[in-house]
Design a protein around this nucleic acid. Structure first.
Lengths: 177, 177
DNA sequence: GATATTCGGTATGGTGCATAACAATTATCA
DNA sequence: TGATAATTGTTATGCACCATACCGAATATC
């Protein structure tokens, strides 16, 4: 598997987005003006990791804006579709969401008629979660938007092979670090 | 540049940490028990990106716990060291921190005597930021901890070449996406 | 059948992030 | 010069996310 250089590995990382949008063109006389030195910050993996994550989420929100879905909501719908008949605890645990915080989230999805809570007959404590027809329809449209607008842009930026390698390494970190 | 496989690129991602810690060994009879199907979630870059970021920050906090520094605080100290004589707006902008939110953060660092605000004589509106001696000492110790414990672990997990490729791609996303 | 555990839920607090507004100071320019 | 606009640090405020403790109902354990 080969990874082509997407940028000089030691290139000075650009300034933040606010600074990026608001800074003036570097005047000829200014030496230490404009961009600051990031120094060791550009070698700190967590720094670029967080910056990249913010950008990706930002783009996700924009791409799927017509459907008004956050990344977290999208992940819930995906999980419900692939794992029908599960209860709140199982879904929340899989996504790393604490059960108390999952309640309001489900309230939101259910009030929009995207999913339903059904009292289990086996265990009347638990709520079985199901996608509604509308939920399935919205999920289908969301998947299409994500694939054609969001992920497609990432593919374009990195190239398919790099994108796969990146995903693989991130999954490795999430799993084994 | 070559990237060795750190894991099967299409391997089903493991369950979340809570589920991971709390789930029982898969009983022989249970078919649809235990791990849920992540489905398209494992192909969603933003999902692994966020998961990996949480893990990395978690490890950072643990590694640098003796010094009681968050990733954000560490990044501020690094920037102040490499860019002496800058004011709050410049530092905050570079790090993507909004000026109002930077105030409390600086209050914390200043109350611990890690940095100082100095009224600029050129522009008496602005505060020049400087590391104190203690700030420089803490930063030096933090750098050492991060390098020998935190980043070293990542190097061990991914390998130096993969780690560099990962950093490069993340910086590319943060810069150009 | 008594006790412990699990499930969904409520309440609550901490933290990060975003916007509006303000006094002091400086820049702009008629 | 003097009126107006812009900038700097700051406060206040609200929202979203995250974490913990706790509760009643239901189930599991023994």
């Amino acid at each position: 598997m080969t990874v082509s250089k997407t940028a000089s590995a030691t290139a000075a990382v650009d300034a933040a987005k606010p600074s990026r949008a608001g800074r003036k063109e570097p005047a000829e006389g200014s030496v230490d003006e404009a961009a600051l030195q990031l120094g060791e910050l550009s070698e700190l993996l967590g720094y670029s990791l967080k910056r990249a994550q913010l950008r990706v989420f930002e783009d996700f929100l924009r791409c799927v804006a017509p459907l008004q879905l956050t990344p977290a909501q999208f992940s819930v719908l995906l999980l419900l579709d692939k794992n029908p008949g599960r209860n709140q605890t199982e879904i929340a645990n899989t996504l790393g969401i604490l059960r108390p915080n999952f309640v309001a989230m489900l309230d939101g999805l259910e009030s929009r008629d995207l999913c339903t809570r059904i009292r289990s007959t086996n265990d009347r404590r638990s709520h079985i979660l199901m996608l509604t027809d509308k939920g399935r329809a919205v999920l289908a449209r969301a998947k299409k938007l994500v694939a054609t607008k969001h992920e497609a842009r990432l593919n374009e930026l990195l190239g398919p092979a790099n994108r796969a390698a990146l995903l693989d390494m991130l999954a490795t970190i999430a799993r084994e670090f």
